[in-house]
Design a protein around this nucleic acid. Structure first.
Lengths: 229, 229
DNA sequence: AGCAGGGGTAACTTTGCGTTAACACGGTGG
DNA sequence: CCACCGTGTTAACGCAAAGTTACCCCTGCT
């Protein structure tokens, strides 16, 4: 899936071994990877390369991850990246502090590569949605907030059930693109699960009921698309 | 960083060499350092100087660290300091006892100065986080006081048990963010401990019972979130 | 020993999401 | 004009997730 490629990831850890290992793993997946060995350096790099995602150790010399996180979050000139902390066990409190400092997720050491990749994918999917949503939402008037699991349409906030949310998230991730039923099924439901075709219609119906008729358009014989304009 | 300065640290160890060495290291970083050579002395000093942080050896003559820790924790008149034990590696058991006596962390000997500094910074940040959290949550109508382990909702004060407190603390650390069960389990319970899924529900229930129904919202199939507004 | 409270589990209930089934409707081609 | 296809719409049902309650074990205190 070429949507994974091209994302810029910043790795921050004081241990060279870990940096190399992760760097290798992620580059193999097609990401552009940059590194830093402490918080101070990380903040500088963020300004230079404006990454989509930061994977950062909590405990580091010079400036630790939480402090760096706070600084990045406060800088309104930055394109805000997703920040995930790497933590060893027994640092529970640091994790909590991490959340209140503005972290989006955490990943526990020791790192399992496969799990890491899949977490990264799901984190980066947010960006697609958030970005397109943010840029488009002025025109479209819709905001999809995955973190809070709410959708805001014309200043009205909706709390959608899981599947409806995921479906909307998919469609809105690329406004104008027509998703066919096969794609929708495999992206929202997954490749294994087999459900009847009518299921999609029903969820579309519920979405239209809540958001209004104008957001999702049917292309007969093809699929559905999230309305631009 | 300015926030580090001005913190009062109490060192407790029976070996004069260590006291001097640590004293020197920490003073160089800008902390105000006091010392004691046994538990008894430590307890007295705490009352006098009311430190933010205590670094204390476990094994000491007169009164050992664990006993001193218990006494300090029980004294409700004290501004509760953060307590970290200094331990040799072979004292695993003492560490466990230390946590149940109310310790916040432990630091293994031999002490690596840089690591020590960074740990201290992260420990002391708790105080800051707790403080900022207090002000933030005023809007929400809830105050979470980590120092006194107390939650205040609409002017009513609650003494929560540890697990309930930690769970609430996590959720409230980022109002609006949805935490899934996996995250909750690993952040509140830790990664190794395996507890049944229903355990979370039960604690959520107890919290709702005490705080009222409106603070914690369930997002079915996703997780829980602390309500804004 | 006895008691109290925290923490966890087990078992049952409740809820509401996701899915299906059944039918309606409109366009299209034979 | 009607048979068919793709989709819209609604109601109903089953099931998994969350709620709830009671109970047990452990620890600490008296």
């Amino acid at each position: 899936m070429e949507t994974n490629k091209g994302h810029v990831i910043l790795l921050v850890d004081d241990e060279q071994d870990i940096l190399e290992f992760l760097s290798y793993t992620l580059q193999k997946e097609g990401y552009k990877v940059f590194t830093a060995t402490n918080g101070e350096e990380a903040v500088k790099k963020v300004q230079e390369i404006s990454p989509s995602l930061i994977l950062m150790d909590v405990m580091m010399p010079q400036m630790d991850g939480i402090e760096a996180c706070q600084i990045i979050r406060k800088d309104l000139n930055l394109k805000q990246p997703i920040i995930a902390f790497l933590t060893a066990r027994a640092e529970d409190y640091a994790q909590i502090a991490g959340f209140s400092a503005g972290a989006d997720d955490y990943i526990n050491k020791p790192i399992r590569p496969r799990l890491l990749i899949s977490k990264i994918q799901s984190l980066l999917r947010r960006v697609n949605v958030a970005n397109t949503a943010n840029t488009e939402h002025h025109e479209v008037g819709i905001i999809i907030d995955r973190e809070r699991f709410v959708v805001i349409v014309e200043k009205q906030e909706f709390q959608l059930p899981k599947k409806e949310f995921e479906l909307l998230e998919l469609l809105a991730s690329r406004p104008g693109k027509v998703f066919n039923r096969e794609q929708i099924l495999s992206l929202v439901w997954g490749n294994e699960t087999v459900v009847g075709e009518r299921t999609i219609d029903v969820h579309i119906r519920k979405l239209r009921e809540k958001l209004g008729e104008s957001y999702i358009r049917t292309i007969k014989g093809v699929g559905y698309t999230f309305n631009q304009v």
